[in-house]
Amino acid sequence: MNILIAEDDAPSRFMLQSLLTKWGYDVTVAADGDEAWKILCDPVHPLLVILDWLMPGIEGPEIVRRLRMKEGNNPHYVIIMTSGTSENSLALALDSGADDFITKPFNNSELRARVNVGCRITRLHEALAEKIYKLESATETIFELARTDELTGLHNRRSFNETFTLVLSSARRHGHPLSLISIDLDHFKTVNDTYGHTIGDMVLKEFSDLLKDMVRIEDVASRWGGEEFIIMLPNTASEAAAALAERIRSNFEQQPSSASPFAVTASFGVAQLQNGDDEDSLIRRVDDALYTAKREGRNRVVTV
């Protein structure tokens, strides 16, 4: 455990440093308040801090106040040291944010005991901060997983719906265009029935990878379920959406699938947000367009 000692009196500083070193601590020393504050502003610095109350530069209690303002999950443990002339010193030291207080000249068994307490609390804080960090990253992972389609890595339906509500209300408020592309792979049941689900899954992945490559960063490409996909295109009119759909369609048709022994194609419906549309009505219209594409012979793009 590393301890910072800030003490302007050289013999006291040396004595304190020697005692703490004898007790097995690593010690960093500062000869005044400014030097102590500089050390505490380093990204890596001791968390257990022994500060003299009255020092040239920034005084002990002010350093504690500044520390408390900037610290996060892993707080410092601060012991303030003073010659204790005033009866209020204890209360003042603790009010400034210090954890403990020791009067000079210190009794060394008391000093040792107080530093040991500080060390124990600092270790607990560190363990807690580590757990909080793990918990936060686990939460982030879970959040990410909850919004991702496991097979394809695209947004899942939940993620699409959440984003769709926000994007739709923003488009309506600002009068920006918004388009959807609804996609269904043609005769996909035949692929699964003939070659099995493993091959079917590989085709879905290949198609998803193609979508990821072809959409813009602001577009939301999602797997709606089964072999159905939906793309949300903010700030995009239906002509541009239809042009993108056509590029995806022709790319997919021309790229021979490495998984499937026969060519798979896809049908596309395109629709743009209109006055009076809500989430459901826009999705209904884009699905109508997709059914029209299917009915008209598949492997085509239909805009409503």
Binding site: D9, A10, P11, S12, D52, L54, P56, S83, K104, P105
Partner: peptide, 28 residues
Amino acid sequence: RQSAHKLKGAADNLALSSLSKIAGRIET
């Protein structure tokens, strides 16, 4: 006040009680 305080603290640590006392008076 600061320099008297510093001398008092140093004297206290060295168990120099007469010196600490007079430094303490000056500080006060």
